[in-house]
């Protein structure tokens, strides 16, 4: 609790942009030996804000479906490293490894850039 209070006080003093108190943080490298999980499992954690399959297209949170792979990686790394200030994405991007970000980039860049409500599920082959 003391640690939280200190960060809080220093922030009020600086009056800066969005920043957060670190209550707990372990870098992604500590989990490098665990079995990897797909870009879909990682990326589906983003849907509450960015929409199902990152594809709402009409909310404040930008769509991710169909996003250019390299742009996605560049942005996520910039968020993670804190070099690009945001409201929430610095905190959101922080726990992922580079490989995980690349897997999410593969996932999102291959999804159709079309509103979720208009997508067809399981199209007849």
């Amino acid at each position: 609790m003391k640690r939280i209070l200190l960060t809080v006080l220093s922030c009020i003093a600086c009056q800066g942009w969005a920043d957060s108190a670190v209550i707990e943080f372990t870098p992604a490298e500590a989990f490098a030996k665990d079995k990897p999980v797909s870009g879909q499992v990682l990326g589906d954690n983003c849907s509450a804000c960015h929409g199902t399959h990152g594809a709402f297209f009409n909310e404040i949170m930008p769509p991710l479906a169909g996003m250019d792979r390299d742009t996605f990686i560049r942005l996520m790394l910039a968020f993670k490293q804190g070099v690009r200030p945001t409201i929430v994405m610095n905190d959101v991007a922080k726990p992922y490894s580079r490989e995980e970000i690349e897997r999410m980039a593969d996932y999102f860049s291959n999804l159709p850039a079309q509103p979720w409500s208009r997508q067809t599920l399981h199209e007849e082959k």
Partner: peptide, 22 residues
């Protein structure tokens, strides 16, 4: 728990309003 980060209180009205709209 790998991460728990909590937004610091801010007196920047722009930031606070943006957080509320999110």
């Amino acid at each position: 728990t790998q991460e728990t980060l909590i937004a610091n209180p801010s007196h920047n009205p722009h930031l606070n309003a943006l957080r509320a709209s999110i």
